[in-house]
Design a protein around this nucleic acid. Structure first.
Length: 139
DNA sequence: GCCAACGTTGGC
DNA sequence: GCCAACGTTGGC
């Protein structure tokens, strides 16, 4: 199972808002970038990802999972953009900040560090495990 | 608030 | 098909 990272600005859509959606989750709309779209196309049901706060947050704050496969983005006009749905799994016991991530040798190749603008990113198993450890999160 | 990085657009 | 101009994102 692949691992992912979803970015959101906390004042636009927070992890708390996703938690409030419960098991139904929420359509991850608004992605207008082909690389990010392609990452979502590759997602399978039940695959997990980090929920990252960009801009004012700059920290990984929660775990999410894919609860609906790629489908047309209901907010898109032509060309037909697509998205998945995700739901909250758990808030991390401790948020892991971008500063911390940058200090970790194991995390130096993260897309988050090297291509910060990509809004939906793949995360390697090693990176996943290490961030969970830093967060005090035990799957 | 600034600016670097990146993607997209449009003129040629 | 190239590349300059522009808009957006996100870290600082």
């Amino acid at each position: 199972m692949a691992k992912w990272l979803f970015k959101s600005e906390p004042d636009v859509f927070s992890f708390e808002q996703l938690l409030a959606k419960g098991m139904a989750g929420e359509e991850w709309t608004g992605i207008r970038n082909y690389q990010a779209r392609n990452n979502m196309r590759a997602m399978k049901l039940g695959e997990q990802g980090f929920f990252y706060y960009s801009n004012t947050g700059k920290a990984v704050v929660g775990i999410v999972e894919v609860c609906k496969l790629i489908h047309p983005d209901s907010t898109a006009d032509a060309p037909a953009w697509e998205c998945v749905d995700i739901r909250a799994v758990a808030a991390l016991p401790r948020a892991v900040t971008l500063d911390e991530i940058k200090l970790e040798a194991k995390l130096k190749d993260m897309v988050l560090v090297n291509n910060s603008r990509l809004s939906v990113q793949p995360v390697s198993e090693v990176e996943w495990a290490h961030i969970c450890k830093l967060a005090g999160y035990k799957g």
